[in-house]
Design a protein around this nucleic acid. Structure first.
Lengths: 230, 230, 230, 230
DNA sequence: GATGAATGAGCATTCATTCAT
DNA sequence: CATGAATGAATGCTCATTCAT
C-alpha cells in the first residue's frame, strides 16, 4: 500500500494484480484437491475428515469452505475431473494413431481406457463405477451452471470427440447410445476384474471385452438403406 | 421351517423349541431389515443412524448389535439380498417360458431385469451399481463363510442357473465371462438411463440394449471346431 | 417374558426399579439445571457452552441432549421455573397474612415480589423481563403439551391463586387483565430500578409503585350496579 | 481526503469535498443499519452474521468494522434509535392536538404508542421490552460519550418533552417516575398482548390500559399544600 | 478509506457402542 | 435375550477478526 507511480505510468494503489491473489487461490485449491485425493484413496472418504484435508493442504480449516461446500462436493468434482482425464487421455492417444475407421477407433479407445485403469488401480477404485458417459457428455455440451474449469488442452480433446461422433453419425444408428453402452461396459467390468479378479483377471478378460465392444459396434450399424438419425 | 412336529401333529414350544424364540428373533431381524431399507432409500445411508433403524423397527438400540455388526454390514446383506432377488425373479420367469436356445434365454433374462429395475426405481437406486455378477456367482458356489440364509425356493433357482450354464458350455467359449459382461452392462446402463434419463430414456435404450446383448452372445460363441472350455 | 416368579410373587428379572434409574435421571437433570443457572448468570448465556454446563454438572456432553433440545430450551425452562417460584413464594407469604381484601392482597403480593427481586438481583437479571403473567397463567391452566413437572407444593399455591381470583371476580371488571398489568408493571420497573437505579433507586420507587398498584386496582373496580363478568 | 483542490475553485473529487465522501460514508452506514434491521427481525440476531449484514448492504466485511464495534453494538444503536423514534412520533402527534392538561397529554401519548406498536409488530418484537424510559431520558440529558447523532427534528421534540415536564412539575410529585412507570407498563403489556394475544387482545386491553394510565397519574398528583419537588 | 481472502478458535451436535439391569 | 441410559470421541461448520493489497 501507499504506493508510488512507476515510470510507465501504469500503476495504481491497490492494483489488484490478477496474478498474485488469483494464483494463490488456485494454489490452495489444488493443494486441497491433491490432498483430498490422496486421503480419500488411502483412508477412504468416510474416514477422511475435513480437518485432515485442510491440514494436509497446509491450509486453515475455514479455507476449505471457501472452495467447497463439503467433503462430498469435493469428491464429486474430483471424480468428474479424474473420469474426464481418462477419457481425454484415451482420445489424445487415439489422435496419435492412424486409425480412421470408427469401429477401430472405438475399440482402441476402450482398450486404452482398460490399460489406464489397469495401471492406475488407485484411481480406478476412486472413480469406482463413476466412469460414466455423463461426464464426457458434459464436456461436449457444457452447461452454463457448470463451473468446471476447462483447460485449453481439453478444448482440443473436445474437438476430437466431436470429430469421432461426426464420422460415426454416417455409419451408426445412435452413436451416443453406442458410446454410452461401451463406456459403461468397460468401466463396470474393469472395476470387478482389475480390483477383485472376478470373475477373471483383466488379462483374461481383455480379449472378450474387445470382442464384445466390436460386436456392440456392429450391432449398432445402420442397415443398408436405413437413414442416419438427425 | 425350523420346527418339529410332535406326534400328535401339533407343534409345540418347548419341544426342542426352536420355534417361538427363533421366530421372534426372525421377526425382529426382518423388522430391522425392512426399516433399514426404507430409511436407507429415503434418507440415504449416511444420514441413517442405528438409532433410527432400531427405533423404526421398534427394537432397543442394543438389540441391533445382536444381529448386525454395524450399519454397513446390514447394508451389504441387504444389497446382496435385493440383487439376488432380482436375478432369481428373472430366472424364475425364464422357467415359465418355452425358450430353449441359450441366446434367447439370455436376452430374455436381460430384458426381465431391465423391466424389474424400471418398475422399482427405489431398489435400483439402492443396489445402484452393485447388481454385479459376483452376487450371483456366490449363489452358485456358496462359500463357507457366507452365513447367507438360503431358502428352498432359492435352491431351485440355483438349479436353473446351473442348467443354463451347462447348455451354454457347449456353445460358448466362456459362459461365465459372457454372463458377467452382460449383467454389468445391463445394471450399469439401467442406472443411468432409468434414474437420470441419460443419455436416453430406458424405453429408447431398450432395443439398443437387446441388440447389444445378443451381439455380445454371438461374439462369445465357439467357432467351428473350437473346443469347449473345461 | 424372561421372568422368574419368586416366592412372594413380586419379583422379576429386569425389575425396572422405578426408584434407582428414575431417581438417577432426575439427579442428572437437576445438576444440569443448577449448573446452567450458575453459568448463565455469571458468564451470560452467550458465553456459556453446552460443554461448560455438562462439565459443571459432571455429566457427559451427550447426556445434555438426553434432557434438553439445546441451550435455549434449558434457559426457557429455567426462566419459567424461576418466575413461577417468585410468584409462588409471594402467594405463600400472602397465605400467612390476615389480609382479606383483594386490593390489600394484591398490593401485598406486588410488594413481596419487589422485595424478592431486590434481594435476589441475580435471578432478577436472569429472568429479566420475563416475569410475565403468562407464566402464572400456565400454572392455573396447565396445557397438555407442557411437560413441566409440578410439585405438590405448587398445587397448593395454585389453589391460593384460584381463591384470590374468585374473590376478585366479585369486585373487579377483569381480574386477569388487572393482575397482568400489575405483574408487568412491577417486573418491568424493578428491572430498571433495581439493576440500574434508573430513574431512581428501588427504595425511592417503592412508594410510588405501591400507589400505582393500588390506583390500578381501584380503576379496575366494578361500578355500582355493573355486573361482574362471567 | 486523499484530495487536492483545483485552482479554479470548483470542487471535484479531490476538493475537500466533505460532501461526497462523507455522504458516501453515511450511505454505507445506513445500508448497514437497514440490512441489519431487516435481518435481525427476520432471522433473529443470533442467526445473523456480520457477513450477512455486510453482504446485504453491498459492503465488504471489513467495512463493517469501520462503523461498528460488533453485531451487538449495531443492535443496541438500532434499538435506541427505534425506541426514540416511537417516543418522538408520539410527542410530535401530541403537538398537533389541543390538549393542555398534562394528564390528558400523558394518556394521549400512551395511546399513541400503543397504536404505533400495534401497527408495527416487527419493530415491537425487535425493541421488545427495551422501550424503556432510559432511552428518552438520554434524549433529555444527553451524555458526553453518546455519539448518537441527533437530527434537528429531534431537537424540536426534546423541547416538547421538556415543556411537558415543566407543566407536570407543578402538579405531580415526581413526573419522571410517573412517566417511567407508564412507559414501562405500556411497553411491557403491549409486547405480550399484541404479539401473543395474552392474556387478551390489544383491542380488549386498550381501555383497561387507558384507565390504568390515568389512575397512575392521579395517584401521582401532589396533594393540597404539598410542595412540588425541586 | 475499502476490500475480501484467510484464519483457526470455538461450538453444537451426532452416534456407535457399552453395560448394568 | 432385551433394554435404553449414558458415554465422549469425533467432526462438521461458523464466523468474528485481521491484514496485505
Amino acid at each position: 500500500m501507499n504506493q508510488t507511480t512507476t515510470s510507465d505510468g501504469t500503476s495504481s494503489r491497490y492494483h489488484h494484480s490478477v496474478g498474485k491473489a488469483a494464483k494463490n487461490k488456485q494454489v490452495k485449491k489444488n493443494a486441497l484437491y491433491d490432498t483430498a485425493f490422496h486421503l480419500f484413496t488411502s483412508k477412504g472418504i468416510a474416514h477422511t475428515s475435513i480437518s485432515d484435508i485442510a491440514e494436509g493442504a497446509q491450509v486453515a480449516k475455514g479455507t476449505f469452505y471457501l472452495y467447497f461446500k463439503d467433503k462430498y462436493d469435493l469428491r464429486d468434482r474430483l471424480i468428474r475431473h479424474k473420469a474426464a482425464q481418462i477419457m481425454e487421455k484415451a482420445f489424445a492417444a487415439l489422435d496419435k494413431t492412424a486409425l480412421v475407421i470408427p469401429e477401430d477407433q472405438i475399440v482402441f479407445l476402450a482398450g486404452h481406457i482398460v490399460s489406464q485403469l489397469t495401471v492406475d488401480k488407485i484411481t480406478l477404485r476412486f472413480i469406482a463405477k463413476n466412469l460414466s458417459w455423463g461426464v464426457i457428455r458434459n464436456r461436449l455440451y457444457p452447461t452454463a451452471d457448470g463451473d468446471e474449469e476447462e483447460s485449453s488442452d481439453e478444448k482440443i480433446v473436445s474437438d476430437k470427440i466431436r470429430d469421432l461422433f461426426q464420422s460415426m453419425a454416417r455409419r451408426y444408428r445412435n452413436p451416443e447410445v453406442l458410446m454410452f453402452m461401451i463406456v459403461e461396459l468397460v468401466g463396470s467390468t474393469c472395476y470387478s476384474s482389475i480390483l477383485e479378479g472376478v470373475p477373471v483377471s483383466i488379462e483374461e478378460l481383455r480379449p472378450y471385452l474387445a470382442d464384445a465392444v466390436r460386436a456392440i459396434c456392429r450391432a449398432g450399424e445402420l442397415q443398408n438403406g436405413e437413414p442416419a438419425a438427425d
